[in-house]
Design a protein around this nucleic acid. Sequence first.
DNA 1: GTCTATAAGGAGATAGAC
DNA 2: GTCTATCTCCTTATAGAC
Lengths: 214, 214
Amino acid sequence: MTAAPAEPPPQSPRARRGRGAAGARRVAYDARSLLAVAVQEFNARGYDATSMEDLSRAAGITKSSFYHHVSGKEELLRAALERALDGLFGILDEPASQRGSALGRLQHIIGRQVEVLTTELPYVTLLLRVRGNTDIERWALARRRAFDATLASLVAEAVEDGEVRAGVEPWLAARLLSGTVNSIIEWCRPGRPGSERLPAQVVRMVSEGIVPPA
Amino acid sequence: MTAAPAEPPPQSPRARRGRGAAGARRVAYDARSLLAVAVQEFNARGYDATSMEDLSRAAGITKSSFYHHVSGKEELLRAALERALDGLFGILDEPASQRGSALGRLQHIIGRQVEVLTTELPYVTLLLRVRGNTDIERWALARRRAFDATLASLVAEAVEDGEVRAGVEPWLAARLLSGTVNSIIEWCRPGRPGSERLPAQVVRMVSEGIVPPA
DNA sequence: GTCTATAAGGAGATAGAC
DNA sequence: GTCTATCTCCTTATAGAC
């Protein structure tokens, strides 16, 4: 879309001769900062619709220069998906995800999932749009399914323990929970004031719904 | 993916000389049946990742023959998005969407939205994945936003009327509601037994949540 | 209506100068 | 590290025979 770099300087700013089309001054890129640029472009247009030319233009360098830093388009996708999945699975390793009642653990995970979605927004956004066209994408989809399966079994446990309203089908509830939480990426803007209250609000909404108790 | 036609005969079956790679017998295609084939392929791999060669192979004919029936890739997308949006906006014209309490109207629309998502699944799925890369896609996104805005104002009205639990922020609730309903496309399979109960289950889940009243 | 053949352009990726 | 130039393959789309 734009020719200006979309990312702040990754290292110490250093004057450069080259200029982007918008005249922006650029600094030394590394693989990590270019990944951030790439993921933003992938999310803006979709992975398949984004060319390496698009990425290099967004970084303010030529396609060849871009290839000097990264090995290819799919490697960028792999690194981004790995980062998103590491963030999500890290939640399951937390003590609060493993101790206490099933409902309590579920609520903790949901709240933390909202936080991770917020802090790792571009990477998780990319993950949630993967279609399974390549081995990398299928690997990411399989890991996502494993994460969702963990949540589903937790919901089932909460139902068995009678901590959940009667008539809730575990399978359906788990899918709607995941869907609700994941849908945040469609409108979430981390910088927005009050966003630190979002996890608690989401947990309360999925727990109590919107209708006042009779 | 497969060379066999993905759609039942659109008109009276008639023996043909040509065979697909799988040896399947084909019948007369028209623009509507080819649209169904195309949308299925678009959803399987993503619109941008699906080539006209992929589409024609899925229909069991060559690319040139495919072009004899449809004017181009983007025209297929336009027709599909139009069908999805017509289904959604049709809900708002129903009497039950315009009469009664704000909460009642909201619950009716949500239930009907689940139904439309189910009956028009492939078309709505495509709609919900549009990124805004072309004029057609931006038009579809704008119409989607208009639909969501209608729901949001209805939530706000329900909050003003005191029909909704205290502490619910209209803006957030509306987005989570839409996200929950739309997430159904990720796992919904219309033929599955018990799917006719889905609309009511979703309405109850977003209304009452999963935790039993204290 | 379907086919083979092909045009015209864009994609990912590389070579080699500076 | 960045550039220009280029390779090769794949894309959308069309021409014209049958």
